[in-house]
Design a protein around this nucleic acid. Structure first.
Lengths: 221, 221
DNA sequence: GCTGATTGTTACAAAAATGTAACAAAAGAG
DNA sequence: CTCTTTTGTTACATTTTTGTAACAATCAGC
């Protein structure tokens, strides 16, 4: 399967060179000269220039990491040699990496390849969320309750996945709204209704889906 | 069938730890502190330390790849973080992989498992995708349904092949579009229509080609 | 207990996704 | 070129999902 790479750099020349090179390697490449809104089809990796105005690459990266929807997208930062320390200190570099400008194309390619394959392994081993007999398969978008396949709608599935992926953490309605409905606005009561719908479907596990009075909802494993 | 794994590392402690772990996973484990002559009973996979004297892991791997008898044995290299680039640039990493020291046992296990299943699949699926009486021959681009050759058009064939190659995984329309029509744009309703055309042709297997409301399509084996 | 805020439930209308037929455009074969 | 096949698009009926209002139940603090 072709990998999607998003290249963000305010110098069009650099975008073009990288685009050319990665297309030759079989990637689907999207370039942009500034941070953009990510659509439904998220890239597999982002190659991000740090020095940009008005919004620095760092700031945008922080935003991406803040949203569960985009948090897992690996980012490779492009930075001047003099900024190297900042990167190393400022970022955990969890699934991320960086290259210093001016970079060798070969190095960039190698790092992209390495980061993608690394994150792929991590994703593969996390394609299933499970608590006792309650199993979510994120690939097939199916939910099994004690061995029975239970039909879930999209919204229901995404909400349960969000909560189960972070057990023991309270999610405010607002947080849930922003994650599941990133684009348009819906009432926060909508969350309640969908929680109720999920509870009905997960039967005995409905006790795990608790409301925290005044705070929001939480999945207790 | 138990898988045979050969672990080569000049540190006996590491050998022992890995041996213990993989035996618990049900592997037949052989360890060695240096490259050895492979007997009649070839391992299914080799876990190979790169930094060894007198013969580096790389050199030995090259020898193995040079002999038809051992060429197809997948190898996972263990290397220091600083050597990562060398691996990526020097090796195609075709069916191979690598881990950086110090490694997490969990990661090593996952990679071994992934590499083995990958190589297994490559051997098994000689360009044929098959589910019961539904057989796609990727070389001749022919589709057989319960023994009958059914004429498929190009688009239909590619779409079915994509879905059948990844059974149990949901593909969004967008994903399908980008795979089948990587260059120019077509409506996502086009996907629906072609799915319908495929369903008609695969008769009883049409139930396997399911739509996931809000997500896309999935082939259920 | 009482009170106001929060949460649960239900019903229903609105919106969105999907399947299908019909047609138009494009590509190939002869 | 003409005929045929393939492919994309549109339109519309059908199905499924989803948001919201209204009301009931519950909770926290007094």
């Amino acid at each position: 399967m072709k990998k999607r790479i998003l290249i963000v750099d305010d110098e069009p020349d650099i975008c073009d060179i990288l685009k050319l090179n990665f297309e030759m390697e079989g990637y689907v490449v999207q370039t942009s000269e500034a941070p953009i809104e990510l659509g439904d089809n998220l890239p597999d990796i982002i190659l991000l220039d740090v020095m940009m105005s008005p919004k620095s690459g760092f700031e945008w990266a922080k935003e991406l990491k803040a949203s569960p929807r985009t948090a897992q997208i690996p980012i490779i930062f492009c930075t001047a040699k003099s900024m190297e320390d900042d990167i190393l200190q400022g970022f955990a570099l969890g699934s991320d990496d960086y290259v210093c400008k001016p970079f060798r194309i070969k190095e960039v390619k190698a790092r992209v390849k390495a980061v993608i394959s690394r994150s792929e392994r991590e994703i593969n081993s996390e394609k299933i969320i499970k608590h006792k007999g309650l199993v979510l398969n994120l690939e097939s978008k199916e939910c099994w309750v004690d061995g029975n396949l239970v039909p879930f709608t999209k919204i229901e599935f995404e909400m349960l996945a969000l909560l189960m992926a972070n057990p023991g953490q309270v999610f405010s309605r607002e947080k849930i709204l922003q994650t599941i409905w990133p684009n348009y606005y819906v009432t926060d009561r909508t969350v309640d209704v969908n929680i109720a719908r999920i509870r009905k479907k997960i039967c005995s596990y409905s006790e795990c889906l608790q409301s925290k009075f005044g705070y929001g909802y939480i999945f207790r494993g």
